[in-house]
Write a protein that binds this DNA or RNA. Structure first.
Lengths: 205, 205, 205, 205
DNA sequence: GATGAATGAGCGTTCATTCAT
DNA sequence: CATGAATGAACGCTCATTCAT
């Protein structure tokens, strides 16, 4: 159970998380803690009181964004099946990630394999993705040889590719999302490589 | 004109580039110069003699890899047209990049926009890609609304996505390459977002 | 407006400036920042918090000493005119500079021409020197062909010369000051070389 | 006895000394050995073959210039006595030193107390200065309370002061030399501080 | 003997983290 | 509890000096 925070403390915590989220998103994970503190209008020590290491702060920010992604997935899992739900998930999730340099770096670095809260959250996301995939495949609108674990991989693909252009062309991610989605439709030759499992994704790095 | 190097110097230079390439590939661009020197069996100053700054070393290593990629593209541009040449390019290029964290970081950071030698090299790559795309579209095996500038973006997409798995599953990139290639085949609905130009890729970051 | 410093910070700042002043005075400007930190009983980063570069620390120490010199000049400008005030200025100023290797090096290197606070301070010094010279010449005790800009040059002359002996013979500077002052008295043949302006002193170097 | 050098070696040695002399004069003693080697058109190792340490090279260059100064002194000691010979020495010696940053730095740092060849040379200079002073005092044109050891101190004074202006106003040293010489004429009040000995000059530092 | 490449100790500087107020 | 000052380990880089060719 989390202790109840005093109201000013809660406000500070929120300011820190928001400042960190902005800073990491804009400039990547190497922004200094002092920069974040300045943005949040607090002292550095206040940050370290809540987050014993910078890593912990990164994880918290990452977790928040990941929560949004998982919620998107869960909402999409409730949609009437079909490729439209897959596309909806890619759209919403890409929108959340493509401008967030820190988030993409976190994924690239493959961190946070050990955090149980994060793992539980991701587990929820996986379950939702499984339903999205199952629904679309049941509707015959998603090729059968695609597996749920492909989805986060392809999502990251779209975001990383589109991020190359996102500074100058903010909406360009949609183009690459569409191209990838088109590859997921039925009617293609079989894949020559067996599917990974979810477990392989954040694995040994 | 480059001066001929003494044999020991040439050996050391090669050792440095190889050590740096390995280190950057395995651990990313933040590896210390001292680590690289140790790996190469030389002193740190030996590195700085050849590469006045760490940035220069990074650029040299990046350039080497990029040369390989461009050569692959040029070779594929000579192949009999069709989607097979596109696939061949993606295969060979992904193979080169997917295990190289430093290379992917360089792309993500959009560096080296100002280096004229690199820009000339990339220009060559773009020309080759244009031919690959034109050939495949002439053969009716590549959807018409795909443009050459999409290729480097999609290549980076495949590599970034597959990199998530490459530690544990070294060959998995092929799966995602195939999925993306399938999205490039003709017969899909039109893309809702106009194509970027090459110039937009390494743009304002 | 300068923010008020916390008491511990103020103490450390003072310790740093004093340690730096001593170190530069004794051993010249090439003393390492780490040496100064050790002398001051602080970590190196504490120095860099207040002085972003070593150059800034040097400038601050230089400025402090220069302030003392300028205050001496202003005090001497208030004295009843005559050569005695000139001598008083040389005495007090030489006393301040002759044991300070760092200060003399700074003058020799002609640095800090660009710092506006320093230039304003030096301007004040020049104004005071002009008064000292005018008073002494009005009293007929200073030769008429000496100009104000000669004073800082001659002061540096005395200090540099006397510094050769100051280690073994701490009071010897007085001898050379007297010799130089004697050269400033009226009754000598005219100088063959026109006077410089203040502006020429910290000029192109 | 010096070994006879092969002619190319002698040429190299000369080139090194000249390059070093120029470099030290223009930019001070902190110029890198590599810079000097480049200027001389030799490799760095060639310099270190002749001069085991940079210090030794500095000493050799210093010695050469000092030889010129001593020769000037000896020539002036032969002139018909009077203040004119003193002035002639100051003129020639200042001309040699005022544009030579390295030389002045060497004097300021008080080095080379231990080199027997240098000490012998300086001894010769002292003897010559003693004669110059004695001649001028015998002629009644130099104040009696000035001692020979004052001369090198005052010479350095003139050079250090005038060096402040020498970049922009190359002939300005003459002005300060004249002012100092005027202070050496008879007819001034006695000095309050006893004269130093030659031994005190390069003493404890 | 001459070269220039290699060296490693040391520099100024940064930053996540701890401590005193 | 919040602050910002202090810390020291680590970084990129330089240079007098040594070594291999």
């Amino acid at each position: 159970m989390e202790k109840a925070l005093r109201s000013d403390a809660r406000r500070n915590l929120e300011a820190i998380l928001q400042a960190a989220a902005e800073a990491f998103a804009e400039r990547g994970l190497e922004v200094g803690v002092a920069d974040i503190a300045r943005r949040a209008g607090v002292g550095t020590a206040t940050i370290f009181r809540r987050f014993p290491t910078k890593e912990d702060l990164i994880a918290a920010v990452f977790m928040r964004r990941m929560e949004e992604v998982v919620e998107v997935a869960e909402r999409c899992a409730e949609l009437p099946g079909g490729i439209a739900a897959v596309r909806e998930f890619f759209e919403r999730a890409t929108e959340l990630q493509v401008r967030d340099r820190g988030f993409l770096e976190n994924i690239d670095k493959g961190r946070f394999a050990g955090d149980p809260r994060l793992e539980a959250l991701i587990e929820r996301g996986y379950r939702a993705i499984e339903r999205i995939v199952a629904n679309a495949q049941a509707a015959g609108e998603l090729r059968a040889d695609v597996k749920p674990a492909d989805v986060p991989v392809l999502l990251h693909s779209v975001c990383s590719g589109a991020a190359l252009l996102s500074a100058g062309e903010p909406g360009m991610w949609r183009r690459y999302m569409e191209l990838v989605i088109d590859g997921l439709r039925p009617g293609h030759a079989g894949l020559t490589c067996p599917a990974p499992t979810f477990d392989a994704i954040a694995g040994a790095r």
